Amino acid sequence: MTGTPTRVLVLNSGSSSVKYQLLDMSDGSRLAQGLVERIGEETSRLAHTPLRAGGSAPRERTGPIPDHAAALKAVAEELAADGLGLDSPELAAIGHRVVHGGLRFTEPTVIDEEVIAEIERLVPVAPLHNPANLLGIRTARAMRPDLPQVAVFDTAFHTTMPESAARYAIDVETADAHRIRRYGFHGTSHAYVSRAAAKLLGKEPEEANVIVLHLGNGASASAVRGGRCVDTSMGLTPLEGLVMGTRSGDVDPAVTFHLKRVAGMDADEIDVLLNKKSGLVGLCGDNDMREIRRRVDE
């Protein structure tokens, strides 16, 4: 290899999946992409697709992948099989999607120990995601400690919301003391989709008003005016808003008090219930829409 390294590995470590792409930034081309899904289940699946000229056929492996560290190691093995290993001198950086950056991180940020500490500090308001993001960051840093690692935050796109949208109707001093406000999530998706929709309409982002729906195991909606987010359905945490795969979405806040008083559940138990045992899995017994549709068809 000659010249400056141009490859960037992009990792999206979600609550139960890892999506990835290897890009050549000299021309914006994709060299490989893939998905590890159902992490932590017996039916884990890795689908890997080499995309560069002369690449091999798509490959798939199934079987238990216990955690995100194991998932990233499996991804590294698949890339290495195509001659695109993480040890390549052509790899310039690794980018990470991080869910919660609070108000501090409003743009892509080079990761250091201080950034990691702040991401970890925000775990209580993104308990399903920031820990997975941190695992991805720490595993990738261990694999290539010499490379710059960059975090792109899901909350960043929503920092343009006016106070009228970001504020909750609770005591202002209490809210400010504990940083309680609507942060919003899925920002990278909402930003991309709003811009792509404007382009499809033959407009600049500044000329288009768009309602964006991000629908997956996590789901959210946003209102984008002139390329800037002005409102969104998720709030302090990714729990608020639409019904999701394992998350309840909006419920009467008094449900939590009722569960404590009547069912004797503590805060951690209620947290697990609303984040991991609600939504589609609570209503249907499954959080995979493909399985729900299959059962409906039967």
Rank of each mutant, 00 (worst) to 15 (best):
N133M: 12
S222T: 07
D146L: 11
R179G: 10
R182H: 03
E204G: 13
P162S: 13
A191T: 07
F153G: 00
P238F: 12
A177R: 15
L135E: 10
D146N: 11
A191D: 14
I170Y: 03
F185I: 09
I180C: 03
D176V: 08
S233F: 04
E206L: 12
A197S: 14
L213R: 00
N130M: 07
A191K: 04
A191I: 01
V150W: 06
I211C: 13
A196R: 15
S189P: 05
Y168T: 02
G227W: 01
D171V: 14
G235N: 10
F157K: 00
N130A: 09
L201I: 09
S222H: 04
D146V: 11
S233N: 07
L200E: 15
E204L: 14
K203A: 13
P145S: 13
Y168A: 05
P131A: 10
R141V: 04
A177N: 11
M161E: 03
L134F: 02
S222E: 06
R141G: 07
H186K: 05
S220T: 02
A175R: 06
L201P: 04
A191R: 13
D176T: 08
S164D: 09
V152L: 12
G202P: 12
N209G: 11
F153Q: 02
M143H: 03
M161K: 03
D171T: 12
E163K: 14
E163V: 14
A132V: 05
F185Q: 01
D176R: 14
G216A: 13
G227V: 10
A223P: 11
V193G: 03
R144L: 06
H158Q: 07
M161P: 01
F153T: 01
V212E: 02
L134A: 02
V230T: 09
A198E: 03
I170Q: 02
T159H: 05
M234H: 10
Y168F: 14
L135I: 13
K203D: 08
S164N: 03
H129P: 10
T155Y: 09
S189V: 06
A165E: 00
A196P: 02
G187Y: 08
G218L: 09
L135Y: 00
R144A: 10
I170A: 04
H178F: 15
T174S: 13
G184K: 00
A219H: 03
M143Y: 01
P145I: 11
R138A: 08
G218K: 05
T160Y: 01
H129T: 13
A208I: 01
R144C: 08
S233T: 15
A165T: 04
